[in-house]
Design a binder for these strands. Structure first.
Length: 768
DNA sequence: TCAGAGATGTTTTTT
DNA sequence: ACATCTCTGA
């Protein structure tokens, strides 16, 4: 980083503040009194409780500008921390627009990016060498799995990702392996999780890598061990700003507290009602405890909402009022939309997920006919799997859309392979990269050969690549494998030399070509192979923007940008509720408001606090809407090829009646005769797996067997079928009716599993 | 060593 | 339904 003030011996001269002008500074105009207070209270700790749509970002950027304009500190003595890259980028842009290029000098970024910036500077203190890799989830699990196998821990019984989750949570709490309290260890991995954590950390150092949690944890370790370094940062950061404080985990909190200790000018902005990341270690407690943690703190509440209509706000407020643990805060409509109540939240029931997608798109089109643009609309789903039906609908109707989230470009196998090549070039110790590509494309270096290298590597305490060099001088490998390995090592060395002279894009293109990796995919006849070749080409063109390979590697590790066709002019947005935080749209669709989907099944198992977090998520969803919100729920839904019938979400009922209108369809209207009730009791809520179910379906079925099988008693419906009837379907074969509503039947087919079909498609089995 | 078949687990949310 | 992992025989 060339612009890093830390690297400069002489920081630019800094002019002290001029005599304060008489008139209020122009950048404060247009702020309401609370916002102005939040901007002007620069000294001492300050907590800004800012509800949805109350101008939080504006306050943050104005506050930054205020500090800089008033010459309270030079930009390089100001730290601004965000949670997401998007927020960091937005703040950077808005700040740049206000104060110009000097904004570049502010320490502004995500916790992880800033942690990395610090860690890069002092990495030797924790045993890392410069250019260390940052592992993604997949790498992490691989490392851990290897260690578990070494320790003879059953990876079937204890899946590495579960164990990794435990380790991650420890890291989130700021615990290094020697700091984990014994009573926190539990029985994960047969009680060996802590040992694994230690081994994992050791292994990461060996391969010169760290994971996301380490970006902060290592810095904390350094601060602890080196008071001089800590003091340097403490002196540096005269003003600290923190966005989305409710999302900070303990290690982030500790990091902030240490940095703020000297000047104590820390301003945290957050909203306890929008805390939706506790599963990732975020501690709402941080925000609730602020006054205690930072004595003498001021608190400012922003409750004037400039975003939404009173109806939307009424719906959202009514909903969130059902949460017991909150600071309590009521949004008032204050913006241009506050004059009229606005349209009520539409609640709409549909038959299944497909019908839901159809209804949403139809509604979107009619809004469009009334002058709305697609780019003013968003569909916000609870979980990734819900996007599928919408995407299909987008494609069949030719509706332009952009999706945020889902599969990330840099997580695709071919991209990770290509990156592994690059990583190995810039970092010969990266055993993970070595292992990944040593036999890719096939070089006749299979498990047996790699095993030999591992032994040599362990025996001599060196990386796999270096161990390979020594093995080449022995006869441990058969000539065939040895020659192949020699070629590979020589290739790596040659490319590593090119690295210093060749631009990154050209280098990667060369490596992919000469290694035969690209050719491997070109020769592959699998239907997805051409797409992979395309992705690799895209990778090379993405590299054109970089002159420094290391910078590129960091970029893709930290900035997992994930916005398909961001440039599309007028497109509807599809994303998860989590991804939507901080955004706003005129019209918001909120599909899948069914029990088990939203609130999510896992949350329902997780007790009250998990349920409240789901409710906050619903609150976030509703408050994204400026003008209209459309909530929908489906009578049945297919998840993993398995039909489920769930009652509509409790959150629907929690929206006050005066702010919603339910337009039912097919007898699904709430409170009307029967349908939703009968749904809730079908199979106790979850479909019965038929035949050979897989995974949790099977387990779920076993759990449920014999209990909870209250099935609605039904008279034969008007179709003439009733529960228990044997039927025959042209395509699915024989089956048994599980439930019937008018002419819609839920049938467990002997072979084809559980499906819902219209009565017209089946005959009584005895008539066939 | 490897290709293909079969079994298995996955899906909440993200830096 | 999907992708990935594991096993098997050539």
């Amino acid at each position: 980083m060339i612009d890093d003030p830390f690297e400069l011996n002489d920081e630019p001269a800094f002019e002290p503040a001029p005599v304060a002008p008489q008139a209020p500074p122009p950048w404060l105009s247009g702020l309401n009194p609370e916002q102005a207070a939040a901007v002007k209270t620069t000294e001492g700790p300050l907590l800004v409780l800012s509800g949805a749509g109350t101008g939080k970002t504006r306050v943050l950027t104005t506050r930054l500008a205020h500090i800089l304009y008033q010459r309270l500190a030079p930009p390089w003595n100001v730290l601004a921390v965000t949670f997401t890259n998007r927020a960091a980028k937005e703040m950077r842009e808005r700040l740049g627009a206000m104060i110009g290029p000097v904004s570049e000098q502010v320490w502004l970024g995500t916790f992880h990016a800033l942690g990395l910036k610090m860690l890069r500077r002092h990495c030797d203190l924790v045993g890392l060498r410069s250019g260390f890799s940052i592992l993604d989830t997949d790498d992490q699990n691989r490392v851990l799995k290897g260690l578990m196998e070494l320790a003879h821990i059953d990876t079937k019984k204890w899946p590495p990702n579960i164990v990794m989750g435990a380790i991650q949570r420890w890291k989130d709490r700021g615990w290094t392996p020697d700091a984990v309290p014994p009573h926190e260890v539990g029985d994960i991995a047969d009680g060996k999780a802590l040992e694994l954590y230690g081994a994992y950390q050791k292994r990461l150092i060996e391969v010169n890598a760290c994971d996301f949690g380490d970006l902060l944890l290592h810095v904390l370790t350094i601060f602890q061990a080196e008071p001089g370094i800590l003091a340097e940062y403490q002196a540096r950061f005269r003003y600290i700003l923190v966005d989305e404080y409710q999302d900070a985990n303990v290690s982030q909190y500790l990091w902030l507290r240490l940095l703020a200790r000297q000047h104590k000018n820390i301003c945290c902005v957050g909203d306890d009602d929008q805390s939706i990341y506790s599963w990732r270690g975020a501690e709402v407690g941080n925000i609730l405890r602020f006054e205690h943690d930072f004595p003498g703190a001021n608190i400012v509440r922003l409750e004037r909402n400039y975003r939404s209509t009173p109806a939307i706000l009424g719906a959202a407020s009514g909903l969130i009022r059902n949460n017991a643990t909150r600071l309590g805060k009521d949004l008032r409509a204050a913006g241009s939309l506050s004059q009229e109540t606005g349209d009520k939240v539409t609640i709409h029931g549909v038959w299944d997920g497909e019908a839901e997608a159809r209804w949403v798109l139809d509604t979107a089109q009619s809004l469009q006919r009334n002058g709305a643009r697609l780019s003013d609309m968003a569909i916000l789903v609870r979980a990734g799997f819900q996007t599928r039906e919408f995407e299909e609908r987008f494609i069949t109707t030719g509706t332009p859309y952009r999706m945020i989230g889902g599969l990330r470009f840099y997580e695709r196998a071919e991209i990770r392979d290509a990156i592994a090549y690059v990583r190995l070039l810039s970092q010969p110790d990266d055993d993970l990269a070595f292992e990944r590509i040593v036999n890719l494309p096939k070089r006749g270096l299979g498990d047996a050969s790699v095993q030999v290298l591992h032994l040599a590597s362990r025996a001599q305490g060196m990386s796999l690549l270096n161990a390979a060099r020594t093995v080449l001088d022995t006869d441990e490998l058969k000539p065939r494998a040895r020659n192949s390995l020699r070629t590979f090592v020589e290739d790596i060395d040659r490319w590593a030399t090119l690295r210093t002279t060749m631009p990154p894009a050209e280098l990667v293109a060369t490596v992919l070509d000469e290694s035969g990796y690209l050719a491997m995919w070109k020769a592959d006849k699998a239907p997805e192979a051409p797409g992979r070749v395309e992705n690799l080409q895209e990778l090379v063109s993405a590299l054109e923007d970089y002159t420094d390979l290391q910078e590129f590697l960091e970029h893709i590790a930290l900035v997992m940008e994930n916005d398909t066709r961001a440039g599309v002019e007028d497109a509807i947005t599809l994303m998860t509720l989590h991804a939507a935080k901080g955004l706003e749209f005129d019209h918001v669709f909120l599909p899948g408001w069914e029990e088990q989907v939203f609130p999510h099944r896992r949350a329902l198992e997780g007790g009250l606090s998990a349920l409240e977090e789901e409710r906050r998520l619903a609150y976030v969803g509703l408050t994204r809407a400026r003008r209209r919100a459309f909530v929908s729920y489906a009578g049945s839904r297919r998840v993993f090829n398995q039909w489920h019938s769930n009652p509509k979400s409790r959150f629907v009922d929690e929206i006050p009646a005066e702010f919603k209108e339910e337009d039912g369809e097919m007898g699904l209207t709430a409170g009307s005769h029967g349908m939703s009730e009968s749904y809730s009791t079908w199979n106790g809520g979850w479909g019965k797996p038929s035949g050979k179910g897989t995974g949790w379906e099977r387990r779920k079925a076993e759990e449920k067997a014999g209990q909870n099988w209250q099935v609605a008693k039904r008279e034969p419906s008007k179709s003439g079928f009733a529960r228990g009837d044997r039927v025959f379907h042209q395509k699915f074969g024989y089956g048994e009716v599980i439930a019937a509503e008018d002419d819609k039947l839920q049938i467990a087919f002997d072979k084809a599993g559980q499906k819902k079909v219209m009565a017209g498609f089946v005959k009584p089995a005895d008539e066939v």
